[in-house]
Protein backbone atom coordinates (compact mmCIF):
# COMPACT_ATOMS: atom_id res chain seq x y z
CA UNK A 1 0.00 0.00 0.00
CA UNK A 2 1.44 3.31 -1.08
CA UNK A 3 0.24 6.73 0.08
CA UNK A 4 -1.08 9.36 -2.32
CA UNK A 5 1.81 11.55 -3.55
CA UNK A 6 2.66 14.53 -1.36
CA UNK A 7 5.30 17.21 -0.96
CA UNK A 8 7.70 16.57 1.87
CA UNK A 9 9.14 19.22 4.17
CA UNK A 10 11.44 18.49 7.07
CA UNK A 11 11.24 21.01 9.89
CA UNK A 12 14.43 21.81 11.75
CA UNK A 13 12.80 23.88 14.52
CA UNK A 14 9.40 24.36 16.13
CA UNK A 15 9.33 27.85 14.65
CA UNK A 16 9.94 26.56 11.16
CA UNK A 17 7.31 23.85 11.59
CA UNK A 18 4.77 26.52 12.56
CA UNK A 19 5.67 28.74 9.64
CA UNK A 20 5.34 25.77 7.26
CA UNK A 21 1.91 25.09 8.76
CA UNK A 22 0.96 28.73 8.31
CA UNK A 23 2.13 28.60 4.72
CA UNK A 24 0.32 25.39 3.72
CA UNK A 25 -2.79 25.63 5.90
CA UNK A 26 -5.22 22.72 5.90
CA UNK A 27 -3.38 21.00 3.04
CA UNK A 28 -0.56 20.15 5.42
CA UNK A 29 -0.22 17.55 8.12
CA UNK A 30 2.46 17.24 10.78
CA UNK A 31 4.18 13.89 11.15
CA UNK A 32 6.17 12.92 14.26
CA UNK A 33 6.98 9.19 14.35
CA UNK A 34 4.36 8.53 11.71
CA UNK A 35 2.95 5.43 13.39
CA UNK A 36 -0.61 6.73 13.42
CA UNK A 37 -0.52 8.93 10.34
CA UNK A 38 1.38 6.72 7.88
CA UNK A 39 -1.03 3.77 8.21
CA UNK A 40 -3.92 6.16 7.51
CA UNK A 41 -2.07 7.52 4.49
CA UNK A 42 -1.32 4.02 3.24
CA UNK A 43 -5.02 3.11 3.49
CA UNK A 44 -5.65 6.45 1.76
CA UNK A 45 -7.91 7.56 4.59
CA UNK A 46 -5.63 10.59 4.84
CA UNK A 47 -4.06 12.31 1.85
CA UNK A 48 -2.26 15.49 2.90
CA UNK A 49 -0.80 17.47 0.01
CA UNK A 50 2.13 18.48 2.19
CA UNK A 51 3.73 16.37 4.88
CA UNK A 52 5.74 18.31 7.45
CA UNK A 53 8.17 15.96 9.18
CA UNK A 54 8.79 17.15 12.74
CA UNK A 55 10.33 13.82 13.78
CA UNK A 56 13.79 15.30 14.22
CA UNK A 57 12.95 18.18 16.51
CA UNK A 58 15.30 17.18 19.33
CA UNK A 59 14.25 20.34 21.18
CA UNK A 60 10.86 18.71 21.83
CA UNK A 61 12.25 15.43 23.15
CA UNK A 62 12.59 15.64 26.94
CA UNK A 63 11.15 14.77 30.33
CA UNK A 64 11.51 17.62 32.84
CA UNK A 65 10.75 17.94 36.50
CA UNK A 66 8.94 21.27 36.87
CA UNK A 67 7.97 21.35 40.51
CA UNK A 68 4.36 20.21 40.86
CA UNK A 69 4.31 18.85 37.32
CA UNK A 70 6.26 16.73 34.88
CA UNK A 71 6.70 18.20 31.41
CA UNK A 72 7.17 15.77 28.54
CA UNK A 73 8.15 17.08 25.12
CA UNK A 74 5.75 16.10 22.34
CA UNK A 75 8.49 14.37 20.36
CA UNK A 76 9.53 12.09 23.22
CA UNK A 77 9.27 8.54 21.93
CA UNK A 78 7.21 5.89 23.71
CA UNK A 79 10.35 3.83 24.45
CA UNK A 80 11.87 6.85 26.18
CA UNK A 81 8.74 7.59 28.21
CA UNK A 82 8.29 4.01 29.41
CA UNK A 83 11.94 3.75 30.56
CA UNK A 84 12.18 7.21 32.11
CA UNK A 85 12.80 7.15 35.88
CA UNK A 86 10.88 10.37 36.52
CA UNK A 87 7.85 9.10 34.62
CA UNK A 88 7.99 5.75 36.41
CA UNK A 89 8.26 7.29 39.86
CA UNK A 90 5.94 10.30 39.44
CA UNK A 91 3.27 9.15 36.98
CA UNK A 92 3.51 5.36 37.03
CA UNK A 93 0.20 5.00 35.21
CA UNK A 94 1.62 6.74 32.15
CA UNK A 95 4.68 4.44 32.10
CA UNK A 96 2.41 1.40 32.38
CA UNK A 97 0.07 2.55 29.61
CA UNK A 98 2.98 3.51 27.35
CA UNK A 99 4.59 0.09 27.75
CA UNK A 100 1.41 -1.41 26.30
CA UNK A 101 1.33 0.72 23.15
CA UNK A 102 1.80 -1.45 20.06
CA UNK A 103 5.04 -3.39 20.26
CA UNK A 104 8.73 -2.53 20.77
CA UNK A 105 9.19 -1.54 17.12
CA UNK A 106 6.24 0.84 17.31
CA UNK A 107 7.46 2.27 20.61
CA UNK A 108 10.88 3.00 19.07
CA UNK A 109 9.25 5.34 16.56
CA UNK A 110 5.94 6.57 17.97
CA UNK A 111 5.82 9.67 20.16
CA UNK A 112 3.64 10.82 23.04
CA UNK A 113 2.66 13.98 21.17
CA UNK A 114 1.77 12.07 18.02
CA UNK A 115 -0.47 9.71 19.98
CA UNK A 116 -2.27 12.62 21.65
CA UNK A 117 -2.62 14.76 18.51
CA UNK A 118 -4.06 11.81 16.58
CA UNK A 119 -7.03 11.83 18.98
CA UNK A 120 -7.86 8.18 18.52
CA UNK A 121 -10.43 6.87 21.05
CA UNK A 122 -8.79 3.43 20.75
CA UNK A 123 -5.38 4.77 21.74
CA UNK A 124 -4.02 3.95 25.21
CA UNK A 125 -2.29 7.20 26.12
CA UNK A 126 -5.18 9.70 25.96
CA UNK A 127 -7.12 7.65 28.54
CA UNK A 128 -4.10 7.66 30.86
CA UNK A 129 -3.73 11.43 30.36
CA UNK A 130 -7.39 11.96 31.24
CA UNK A 131 -7.14 9.76 34.35
CA UNK A 132 -4.02 11.67 35.47
CA UNK A 133 -5.71 15.03 34.83
CA UNK A 134 -2.92 16.11 32.53
CA UNK A 135 -2.89 18.98 30.08
CA UNK A 136 -1.43 19.81 26.71
CA UNK A 137 0.65 22.78 25.65
CA UNK A 138 -0.09 24.08 22.17
CA UNK A 139 1.95 26.57 20.17
CA UNK A 140 0.69 28.61 17.26
CA UNK A 141 0.63 32.02 15.57
CA UNK A 142 -1.35 33.53 18.45
CA UNK A 143 1.06 32.20 21.06
CA UNK A 144 1.12 29.36 23.52
CA UNK A 145 -1.90 28.01 25.31
CA UNK A 146 -2.60 25.13 27.64
CA UNK A 147 -5.64 22.87 27.39
CA UNK A 148 -6.85 20.27 29.86
CA UNK A 149 -7.08 16.72 28.58
CA UNK A 150 -10.90 16.67 28.90
CA UNK A 151 -11.28 19.61 26.51
CA UNK A 152 -8.52 18.55 24.11
CA UNK A 153 -10.22 15.45 22.69
CA UNK A 154 -13.25 16.76 20.84
CA UNK A 155 -14.38 13.91 18.58
CA UNK A 156 -13.32 10.90 16.51
CA UNK A 157 -9.71 11.66 15.47
CA UNK A 158 -10.47 15.28 16.31
CA UNK A 159 -8.78 17.52 18.83
CA UNK A 160 -8.79 21.12 19.91
CA UNK A 161 -5.65 21.76 17.80
CA UNK A 162 -6.15 24.46 15.18
CA UNK A 163 -4.89 23.95 11.63
CA UNK A 164 -2.00 26.32 12.25
CA UNK A 165 -1.16 24.97 15.71
CA UNK A 166 1.18 22.33 17.01
CA UNK A 167 1.20 20.27 20.18
CA UNK A 168 4.53 20.81 21.88
CA UNK A 169 4.28 19.43 25.40
CA UNK A 170 2.31 17.12 27.67
CA UNK A 171 2.07 18.13 31.34
CA UNK A 172 1.12 15.87 34.21
CA UNK A 173 0.70 16.54 37.92
CA UNK A 174 3.27 14.53 39.87
CA UNK A 175 1.64 11.77 41.89
CA UNK A 176 4.53 9.90 43.52
CA UNK A 177 2.32 8.18 46.11
CA UNK A 178 -0.46 7.19 43.75
CA UNK A 179 -1.56 3.64 43.04
CA UNK A 180 -2.68 2.85 39.53
CA UNK A 181 -3.63 0.21 37.01
CA UNK A 182 -3.87 0.10 33.25
CA UNK A 183 -6.30 -2.57 32.08
CA UNK A 184 -6.30 -3.37 28.38
CA UNK A 185 -8.44 -6.02 26.75
CA UNK A 186 -7.45 -7.18 23.29
CA UNK A 187 -7.17 -10.35 21.28
CA UNK A 188 -3.52 -10.21 20.26
CA UNK A 189 -0.71 -8.65 22.28
CA UNK A 190 -0.02 -5.79 19.89
CA UNK A 191 -3.62 -4.96 18.97
CA UNK A 192 -5.53 -1.82 19.82
CA UNK A 193 -7.60 -2.18 22.96
CA UNK A 194 -11.11 -3.48 22.38
CA UNK A 195 -11.72 -1.62 25.64
CA UNK A 196 -9.23 -0.23 28.13
CA UNK A 197 -9.47 1.40 31.52
CA UNK A 198 -6.82 3.65 33.05
CA UNK A 199 -7.18 4.05 36.81
CA UNK A 200 -5.17 6.16 39.22
CA UNK A 201 -5.87 6.69 42.92
CA UNK A 202 -4.12 9.40 44.90
CA UNK A 203 -5.06 10.36 48.44
CA UNK A 204 -8.54 8.94 48.03
CA UNK A 205 -9.22 10.82 44.78
CA UNK A 206 -9.51 8.58 41.76
CA UNK A 207 -9.16 9.25 38.06
CA UNK A 208 -10.57 6.91 35.43
CA UNK A 209 -10.07 7.25 31.67
CA UNK A 210 -11.62 4.86 29.18
CA UNK A 211 -10.19 3.56 25.90
CA UNK A 212 -12.49 2.87 22.96
CA UNK A 213 -15.74 3.51 24.83
CA UNK A 214 -16.90 6.51 22.83
CA UNK A 215 -16.04 8.49 19.72
CA UNK A 216 -13.30 10.14 21.77
CA UNK A 217 -11.17 9.24 24.78
CA UNK A 218 -13.37 9.93 27.81
CA UNK A 219 -13.50 10.18 31.58
CA UNK A 220 -15.66 7.80 33.62
CA UNK A 221 -17.07 10.65 35.68
CA UNK A 222 -19.75 8.56 37.41
CA UNK A 223 -17.14 6.10 38.71
CA UNK A 224 -14.95 8.90 40.05
CA UNK A 225 -17.93 10.51 41.81
CA UNK A 226 -19.04 7.20 43.32
CA UNK A 227 -15.57 6.50 44.72
CA UNK A 228 -15.47 10.02 46.14
CA UNK A 229 -18.78 9.35 47.86
CA UNK A 230 -17.46 6.19 49.45
CA UNK A 231 -18.68 3.47 47.09
CA UNK A 232 -16.75 0.22 46.85
CA UNK A 233 -14.85 -0.73 43.69
CA UNK A 234 -17.61 -3.19 42.79
CA UNK A 235 -20.36 -0.58 43.18
CA UNK A 236 -18.49 2.23 41.45
CA UNK A 237 -17.37 0.15 38.48
CA UNK A 238 -21.01 -0.71 37.71
CA UNK A 239 -21.27 2.91 36.51
CA UNK A 240 -18.24 2.70 34.17
CA UNK A 241 -20.24 2.68 30.94
CA UNK A 242 -22.67 5.39 32.03
CA UNK A 243 -23.15 8.00 29.35
CA UNK A 244 -20.83 6.17 26.91
CA UNK A 245 -21.68 5.56 23.28
CA UNK A 246 -19.16 2.83 22.46
CA UNK A 247 -18.49 1.80 18.88
CA UNK A 248 -19.72 -1.55 17.55
CA UNK A 249 -17.39 -3.43 15.23
CA UNK A 250 -16.11 -6.89 14.31
CA UNK A 251 -14.45 -7.27 17.73
CA UNK A 252 -17.33 -6.28 19.98
CA UNK A 253 -20.85 -4.90 20.05
CA UNK A 254 -21.91 -1.98 22.23
CA UNK A 255 -23.25 -4.12 25.10
CA UNK A 256 -20.12 -6.23 25.23
CA UNK A 257 -17.97 -3.10 25.34
CA UNK A 258 -20.09 -1.74 28.20
CA UNK A 259 -19.60 -5.03 30.03
CA UNK A 260 -15.84 -4.87 29.45
CA UNK A 261 -15.68 -1.29 30.73
CA UNK A 262 -17.36 -2.35 33.99
CA UNK A 263 -15.16 -5.42 34.47
CA UNK A 264 -11.89 -3.70 33.55
CA UNK A 265 -12.65 -0.68 35.70
CA UNK A 266 -13.43 -2.93 38.68
CA UNK A 267 -10.14 -4.77 38.17
CA UNK A 268 -8.34 -1.46 37.80
CA UNK A 269 -9.85 -0.04 40.99
CA UNK A 270 -9.07 -3.21 42.91
CA UNK A 271 -5.51 -3.31 41.62
CA UNK A 272 -5.17 0.33 42.70
CA UNK A 273 -6.15 -0.69 46.22
CA UNK A 274 -9.79 0.47 46.24
Amino acid sequence: MIPVAFDYERATSTEQALSLLAEHGDEAKLMAGGHSLLPLMKYRLAAPAVLIDIGRLEELSYVRDEGEELAIGALTRHCEVEQNDLVRSQVGLLAAATSQVGDPQVRHRGTIGGAMAHGDPASDLPAALIALRGSLVIDGPSGRRQVEADSFFTGFLETDLGEDEMLIEVRLPKLPDSTWSFQKFNRRAQDWAIVGSAVVVDQGICGVGLVNMDSRPIRATAVEEAIKNGSSAAEASELAAEGCEPPADINAGMDYRRHLARVLTRRGLEESGR
Partner: peptide, 23 residues
Protein backbone atom coordinates in the same frame (compact mmCIF):
# COMPACT_ATOMS: atom_id res chain seq x y z
CA UNK B 1 2.16 -4.18 5.13
CA UNK B 2 0.33 -2.66 8.10
CA UNK B 3 2.88 -2.71 10.94
CA UNK B 4 1.39 -5.80 12.56
CA UNK B 5 3.50 -8.79 11.53
CA UNK B 6 7.08 -7.56 11.89
CA UNK B 7 8.43 -9.37 8.80
CA UNK B 8 9.90 -6.06 7.58
CA UNK B 9 11.75 -5.31 10.84
CA UNK B 10 15.10 -3.60 10.36
CA UNK B 11 17.27 -1.46 12.61
CA UNK B 12 17.30 2.31 12.40
CA UNK B 13 20.27 3.65 14.36
CA UNK B 14 20.45 0.28 16.10
CA UNK B 15 16.79 0.06 17.13
CA UNK B 16 14.19 -2.27 15.66
CA UNK B 17 11.61 -0.56 13.45
CA UNK B 18 9.01 -1.71 10.97
CA UNK B 19 10.14 -0.54 7.56
CA UNK B 20 6.62 -0.73 6.09
CA UNK B 21 5.62 2.09 8.42
CA UNK B 22 8.49 4.43 7.63
CA UNK B 23 9.17 6.58 4.65
Amino acid sequence: DSSSCGACTIHVNGEAAKSCTML
